[in-house]
Design a protein around this nucleic acid. Structure first.
Lengths: 174, 174
DNA sequence: AGTGAATGATTTGGGGGCTAACCACCGGGC
DNA sequence: GCCCGGTGGTTAGCCCCCAAATCATTCACT
């Protein structure tokens, strides 16, 4: 009478694949998968938190960039292109983010004084109040998220991520 | 005559924000941002590579999971729920992925022998040929991506990611 | 058996992101 | 002065993903 086979772990499957594909580097794949998984979850968590305040991760990124610029450099505003660059999204996406932020009364667009192709983006008082409410708890949560890593480990993490990042171009090569 | 002010770095803006928000943990935020950035870029790079073969990152994940299962465990197939779990997407999303994979002739759906609510998903010969073509180069690329990290560093990276992952629930708490 | 809770897949509706194509404007070279 | 490549923002169309609601089936309990 047959007994059900023991379950095979992900790593065992990888090992078997490696026999057929000599290019397969098991620890490289494991690390890459771990990275993609965590970031997927982390991005989802951000999205979930922000949705409680009527924001999305992308919209929040824009607001906080404007807020920190306002605090440090005064109300000069930023251009959509600068915001897109800073938020790691395309300019087209930034247009959409700014549209909904403006519709919600959180930012305003003002003519750029020197270049009529552009405009500058500014936080409204409503957005400033929202952020003052939001940020203390948000900063606490991020601090908690990283609280199991001491300063050395945080530095190590950033260094390792930078090393991977440096190889991205070759990953994308023709 | 006024001279343009020197540009302020991201880290300087963070430091100034920290004065107003004592909860702000600058190195925690820096590490979190680094993680989100790299993963965003990495996910985009995956998507870009896969699109050259008419796949997306999500569809590829499904195919390779089926492929490694086929190699290790024979052609038993997997259920949509198993695939969703394994690919870290919702079951609704999996339905859509499988629809397009089936339309492209890469997978087939077969009645589940024991439970008529489910079915099993199987790779077609066409998909197997595609993967045999694709995987050597793909595995090489992933190996290159991680080639600046030695084995110790890879282990460290996974450990650090695991630590962060363990704190995700508290990040999401009410 | 019979009923209700649980499980699995799908449909629907919506948001976010991207690329490619577009128009408006700037600025340098002739 | 005028043209023309470069730059900035927007639009249109597409894909991916999700949550919530829906439908079918199974399972446990009486």
């Amino acid at each position: 009478m047959s007994v059900s086979a023991p379950p095979i772990t992900r790593y065992e499957r990888l090992q078997r694949l490696a026999r057929r594909f000599p290019q397969l580097d098991a620890t490289a794949i494991e690390s890459c998968v771990a990275l993609l998984r965590l970031s997927n979850e982390l991005a989802g968590a951000y999205e979930a938190r922000m949705s409680r305040h009527g924001l999305s991760s992308g919209r929040f990124t824009v607001l906080i960039r404007l807020f920190s610029s306002l605090e440090s450099e005064g109300d000069q505003g930023l251009t959509p292109a600068e915001l897109a660059e800073n938020s790691c999204v395309s300019r087209a996406t930034m247009t959409g983010l700014l549209d909904t932020l403006e519709k919600d009364g959180l930012i305003s667009r003002q003519d750029h004084p020197e270049d009529r192709r552009m405009y500058t983006v500014h936080l409204t008082p409503k957005a400033q109040r929202l952020l003052e409410d939001l940020l203390p708890e948000h900063f606490s949560r991020v601090a908690t998220l990283m609280s199991d890593l001491d300063e050395t480990e945080r530095t190590t993490l950033r260094e390792l991520l930078t090393k991977v990042s440096g190889r991205l171009p070759s990953f994308l090569e023709p």
